[in-house]
Design a protein around this nucleic acid. Structure first.
Lengths: 108, 108
DNA sequence: TAGTGGTACTCGGTACTACAAGGTACTCGA
DNA sequence: TCGAGTACCTTGTAGTACCGAGTACCACTA
């Protein structure tokens, strides 16, 4: 699959929120998860910038824990604002995909 | 619906290609069509920049025709490269929506 | 004990895209 | 003649993902 980066703009953040929402986890693991899911080109730098943004916007709660196999990990969990943001993301996503599906059918 | 602009990045160009592909048309009408379809905030300036990009990249054939109700219109039609690009867009779109659906289900 | 590879986070700069805001210009009806 | 609707264009800005490089810690092994 060629370059998806432009298409992922605005959706990657939602994906990260979803991953954090389903389980408290940390940046490196999130990157791995996204790669597994098929977003092969997403790199660590991107995920960390998203995580910093989420933190700055107050959507997550951060806990630092020693790792045992490297430097300490920063674990992220959603707070209430984060859950709201995630819900809003899915609403937007549904809206957009629905409209584009309609467009594709040549529909009115 | 609040701001969709970030989510539309990378997909709006495909939408415009699809519209042009189904019928030879012009910028102003494309904007109207997108607004009708539910992309209410898409403005003319955005569509024109996309059209110029498509032209520069050699995906469209342009024909100027007098309008009778305003300045002359620039009609756009897809050429072979444009049809290829459109097909590639849908492949990418399917890919991304599928992965995100999987993510949403919490699936592996 | 030095080297390698995997884990884990950070940061500055760049490219691309959609939008904001303003302008130009043509036609028609009041 | 003036406004509204049609139609196009341009410059600048903001947001987002990526690139590339750096830091650091640990386990294993030659």
């Amino acid at each position: 699959m060629d370059d998806l980066t432009e298409m992922l703009k605005g959706t990657l953040e939602g994906c990260v929120l979803e991953i954090i929402g389903s389980e408290e986890t940390y940046g490196y693991a999130i990157t791995r998860r996204l790669n597994e899911l098929g977003f092969a080109d997403v790199v660590e730098g991107t995920v960390y910038t998203i995580l910093l943004r989420l933190e700055k916007n107050g959507f997550v709660q951060v806990t630092k824990r020693p790792s045992g196999q490297g430097p300490p990990r920063k674990f992220y969990a959603l707070n209430d604002a984060g859950r709201d943001e995630l819900a809003a993301f899915w609403v937007k996503w549904e809206y957009v995909t629905e409209r584009i599906a309609k467009l594709k059918e040549g529909g009115k």
